[in-house]
Nucleic acid binder design. Sequence first.
DNA 1: ATGAAAGCGCTAACAG
DNA 2: CTGTTAGCGCTTTCAT
Lengths: 338, 338
Amino acid sequence: MVSRREKKRANLRDVAKAANVSVATVSRVLNTPGVVQKDTLLRVQNAIAALNFHPSAAARAINSGRSKILGALIPSLDNDIFALTIEALENRLGDYGFSLVVATTAEDPIQEARKAKELVNIGVEGLFLSGVSYSADLHDLLRRTGVPAVAMSYFDPDFEYPTIGYDNKKAAQTALEHLVALGHQRIAVVHGPQTNNDRTRARILGASTQRADVSVTYLETELSVAGGAEMVVRTLAAGHGFDAYLCVSDVLAYGVLFELQRRGIAVPAAASVVGIHDLPSAQHTSPRLTTVRLPAKEMGTSAAEALAEWVENDIRPAPRCFESVLVPRESSVAKPAS
Amino acid sequence: MVSRREKKRANLRDVAKAANVSVATVSRVLNTPGVVQKDTLLRVQNAIAALNFHPSAAARAINSGRSKILGALIPSLDNDIFALTIEALENRLGDYGFSLVVATTAEDPIQEARKAKELVNIGVEGLFLSGVSYSADLHDLLRRTGVPAVAMSYFDPDFEYPTIGYDNKKAAQTALEHLVALGHQRIAVVHGPQTNNDRTRARILGASTQRADVSVTYLETELSVAGGAEMVVRTLAAGHGFDAYLCVSDVLAYGVLFELQRRGIAVPAAASVVGIHDLPSAQHTSPRLTTVRLPAKEMGTSAAEALAEWVENDIRPAPRCFESVLVPRESSVAKPAS
DNA sequence: ATGAAAGCGCTAACAG
DNA sequence: CTGTTAGCGCTTTCAT
């Protein structure tokens, strides 16, 4: 194996020498090509190509104070929930010349703060947060360093940082109202851990009703397909009989749907199931999943633009709320008169 | 809003001044604390804390030539297939002090080469590749720059770069043999696009048999749940009658399973379905999905260690092949005698 | 329009 | 054990 330091990369000086100009000129053709004479420009560009020169990002960063790197703090990649958003972020950021470094936090504030610090230390110019509940440590870090940050997946115009997300409470409300309108009265709300998860808490808040003839039972489990399945096993064992399951995430809904079917409980005939998110596969389950669509991709794209503009042009983005919309499909149906 | 450039970050010199030592000493307490005297050490550390000093990654990189950043080129985050691996990569890399920047390529060699170049330009010290088929451009880039790279999701001990993955052909073979052993004779092999995807090609190769009494039909579709579903719609419309569907990825299997059920074709009674991968949710579908387990997480962890060691200690990792194992579940069953 | 030269924040000899 | 001093590769005045 050849050593990987065989021939060192060409640098500004090399190019300057080759093109018979000063390093300053080379730097100019790189950054402000407009101000250099046509023929020198060409000569330098040729030298650059010939030497296969690529400016060192580090050296550039040290001078300009710009790393062109943004960081994203996300709970997990374990499920599709964030993957779509991350992909959208990365794609849009590319257009702005930013790279994205991803750090997972497992929804743990300690880890979140630690990873945030690492990101700042490697020089990220901005941060994407998931939700608005973060530790005092993270808060301090952001204040001290002044690193711009936008929070995604949540909307709160009063939050310290711009939020680009959706109204989680309303989304859950929409789902619940759908179920109530369908005549369901004993409703199970299946959700993930509330600790450190403001999205979940907001959705739980939304999944409630004043109506006396409707009972809502809140069931906490792991935020995963497995968690949803396990919840069904547990409620059935406890003898609960629910008309409908409102799952605060599609991932949970999948688990609930599958497990109900496995137990011979027909969906939607014997129980309705609705989710929140509208993951790509929600329209392919059998029956297809009724859910409230959260525009993960659009949100990612928008957040990317917002933070890029902020970092690049110092224009602080306005908070933005994407609408969530009910997508009625076959997993929910009117309760048969009993 | 306060400007984010209010008070400039403290630097080495500031700390040196505050601690009444030279910059070299400060640098030492940062890198080789062992060699500096106890009390000076303390003094410097206090100054560091007091000034809230954080070394500049860029400056460090420019000197040491080390960015402590690794890049990953992956086809997509759209489905769970790579998400688990990425998460494992990121987690393990953290232990080595490396950050991970993720770039998606949409399985397009042009994009792959472009993103690889970007990654190299921002100074990544190593690259994670997905599979072993990459463009001449990428190849050149790697040769020229000498950036270490490991290829994941594929095993080929003769590949130019170390591969850390699994035997895709064998995995498909395992799945097919399972189906054949069950007595199935008309088998549909559902797969994603072969173009630029060596994993898919290898699996297709594996999903074949010499037996004259078994017919295998290859069906190409989009690599997604939607693709699997659409395939079923198409084959049914064409009047095909298959005993079993061998889906070269769980994602496809989900789509096939769901769509068959929607059409009233009972799985496994009327048709068996098997996948490859064993995604976390495969054990929760109804019926649970028979699949061949590919250890995505372990592979990610291992690849992280391999590349970290290579970059850090210049020890080129040996190729590594993880075993795939059949996980028989309820979606496949012996063909009823007809 | 171009060049000379002074750094950016840090590491790494080399002295002491 | 600690300080001095060169750079690393680039951007940026300030001259010319």
